[in-house]
């Protein structure tokens, strides 16, 4: 009997779709009793269907195993963090213990020092004992390197982006900003704002840097954790302790970037 090839093709496609649907319902645990019957028959009689079923069944096991690997790595990370926190606590405890011993031992010396401090008055006390934000900032700040644009000697294309990153690497931050700003909007890349913020930060324009880092976090298209770290540093620079703590806690809880440094910094602020 003559069979129209187009019709035959359509029929094959329809069967394939129907079979796909059956597999979809099987793996979603939503086969009806009627579908289950058809499903069983196909498994017995249709080698292609059976092969696809086995492939998906294997894939399911593989994905589970892959997820277990990811979960195990996460748990290992949690344990590492807990061990680090514990070590820091023990170190702090030991430091405190040493300090208190010194206090008893050098009581007379301390009394003299205290008298001097009182004589120096509030101003003197304030500069000696209050959190030295500026020094914390300087100890922790370093400019984020160019990790996005490779500048090669033989590169003859003198694009604005290339010029911007050459300027960035030469620490010419004003030029960096000018070049990045000159790039047309439709050629903008997700990381431009992050590097612009870096440039502003190096030019001591913390307000603009903060705005841009905040934008990067909001856009969430890359450099999010890094931006949160710099937002924490800006808050420290501005002596806004609560804000700094908030950023650091967010960084520690949700990201792995600079986690150790952030934990140490948080300890210092607390």
């Amino acid at each position: 009997m003559y069979e129209n090839p187009k019709r035959e093709n359509k029929r094959t496609k329809l069967i394939a779709m129907k079979n796909q649907d059956l597999l979809y319902h099987y793996f979603s645990n939503s086969l009806t009793a009627e579908q289950e019957e058809v499903f069983k028959k196909l498994l017995e009689n249709d080698a292609e269907f059976k092969a696809q079923f086995l492939f998906e069944q294997n894939l399911k096991e593989v994905i589970k195993s892959n997820e277990i690997d990811i979960l195990k790595a996460k748990l290992k990370g949690f344990e590492k963090d807990l061990a680090a926190t514990k070590t820091t606590r023990i170190e702090n405890f030991n430091t405190k213990k040493t300090k208190s011993k010194t206090f008893v031992f050098n009581y007379k010396t301390f009394a003299v020092a205290a008298s001097i401090a009182i004589l120096m008055g509030w101003f003197g006390y304030n500069s000696f004992f209050k959190t030295n934000y500026s020094s914390i900032y300087n100890d922790n700040f370093s400019v984020y390197p160019n990790t996005v644009y490779t500048i090669t000697r033989g590169d003859t294309k003198n694009t604005l982006e290339r010029e911007a990153f050459v300027a960035f690497e030469s620490k010419e931050y004003k030029t960096t900003i000018e070049k990045l700003n000159a790039i047309p909007a439709d050629a903008n890349k997700a990381y431009f704002n992050f590097y612009k913020a870096q440039a502003y930060l190096n030019l001591e324009d913390t307000e603009k840097a903060e705005q841009l880092f905040t934008q990067v976090v909001k856009d969430s298209t890359g450099f999010v954790a890094e931006s949160i770290w710099y937002l924490a540093l800006i808050a420290i620079k501005e002596e806004n302790k609560n804000q700094a703590i908030q950023h650091l806690e967010n960084l520690i809880e949700n990201y792995s970037y600079n986690k150790d440094a952030a934990t140490a910094l948080l300890e210092k602020l607390n």
């Binding site: 894939l59 593989v62 195993s65 892959n66 997820e67």
Partner: peptide, 21 residues
């Protein structure tokens, strides 16, 4: 299968994980 699953793009891995896991 696992060896090649992890070479798939992030979107594919995510989609298949959402469905099968």
């Amino acid at each position: 299968l696992k060896k090649y699953f992890v070479t798939l793009g992030k979107k594919c891995q995510e989609l298949l994980t959402l469905f099968y896991y």
